[in-house]
């Protein structure tokens, strides 16, 4: 079965003092229809840049210098700008973290959803408004027929995020990319919005990419996960595989560094020393080597860039196999 959305060898860069600085490098990922792929990583790992690049939305002077972004087999990055613009919104939807900035305060939410519809479909204002109200109902906004005429400031944070989700699914996209969609929300509201995203994915059969830093959200929501570090995918597999037996030292260290709500009292956290490298000053070899508990010069950790290796469950680590027991 072909992927709904697939990245192949995506590399994006910005000009730097000493030549191009690669923000993301050789990223290959795929998501099937009806599946949720979580992309996890810390700030600066490249998880957001990967998808803004793939959709032609990377701010200048950044640009994609290699790779493909295949939406149901069609390379978005080879399309003329106007066609790419039409694919976005229609066949691939996006939801971002901050539900305030995504909405225009001077238009009603109904007008904003209707605008998305009318940009792509030959329908009347009246019909667009009715469909907008129906969409608000689909994202479970109570009393949708009345609230369609309200302005964004009349909605709570969670309700605004629902409005943005309604806009993203308005044209029945095959893929929905949600970048930290619940990070700005309180935990009880987060749970409601995650439920909604899960329901929509199932009922629409969409492929969903969930970009997050929260391993709890991954465990709750995703089928597969890709872990990014310093612009690369360092581990990928099913959620069960990666959470039960993580293979990359970065993934292993991440699990050890988060406080768990069910952990026995008095459990010590094992932080990862230092911080991720600046994209312009990534070390040669494995970018995680300076912070890694298993680093070994004999294995080339500081000199040779490790490839993603595995079957189904992949990791980019020279010490794979040797470290799992110790971990």
């Amino acid at each position: 079965m072909t992927a709904a959305f697939e990245l192949r060898g995506l590399t994006a860069a910005v000009p730097g003092e000493k030549g191009a600085v690669r923000l993301v490098e050789d990223v290959s990922l795929s998501v099937r229809a009806g599946e949720t792929l979580a992309v996890v990583g810390e700030s600066g790992s490249g998880k957001t840049v990967t998808f803004t690049s793939a959709l032609g939305l990377l701010p200048k002077p950044g640009r994609v210098i290699a790779g493909q972004a295949l939406l149901e087999g069609e390379d978005l990055l080879a399309l003329p700008p106007e066609q790419l613009r039409r694919r976005r919104g229609a066949r691939i939807g996006m939801v971002f973290q901050d539900p305030l900035t995504g909405l225009n305060p001077v238009f009603t939410v109904g007008e904003q959803i209707a605008e998305v519809l009318r940009a792509h479909l030959p329908i009347s204002r009246r019909e667009a408004r009715d469909r907008a109200a129906a969409l608000l109902g689909r994202v479970q906004i109570p009393d949708a027929a009345r609230r369609v005429d309200d302005y964004p400031h009349q909605f709570s944070g969670g309700m605004r995020q629902r409005v943005l989700i309604a806009m993203a699914i308005a044209l029945g996209p095959r893929v929905l990319i949600a970048d930290e969609p619940t990070t700005a929300l309180d935990v009880t509201v987060q749970a409601q919005v995650l439920d909604l995203l899960g329901d929509l994915r199932a009922s629409e059969g969409m492929g969903m990419v969930l970009i997050t830093h929260d391993l709890g959200v991954v465990a709750r929501q995703a089928d597969r996960v890709a872990v990014m570090y310093a612009g690369r995918v360092v581990e990928t597999g099913t959620v069960e595989e990666v959470f039960r037996a993580p293979r990359h030292p970065y993934t292993i260290s991440l699990f050890r560094s988060i406080p768990e709500i069910d952990a026995p009292a008095g459990t010590m956290l094992a932080p990862i020393a230092g911080s991720p490298p600046d994209p312009a000053r990534r070390p040669p070899g494995c970018a995680f080597a300076p912070r890694c508990f298993a680093v070994s010069d004999a294995h080339g950790c500081r000199s040779v860039r490790p490839d993603l290796i595995g079957a189904g469950h992949f990791a980019a680590c020279h010490r794979q196999g040797a470290i799992e027991v110790a971990a």
């Binding site: 309700m159 935990v187 995650l194 929260d214 709890g216 465990a219 988060i258 069910d262």
Partner: peptide, 27 residues
Amino acid sequence: VSLLSAVPRPDPAKERAKARIRPIGEI
């Protein structure tokens, strides 16, 4: 109770087995 129920745990087996207690609406 509902706050604790809403926190996603980094454990897929527990997450999927969990019965959730939801507060209605928002604060």
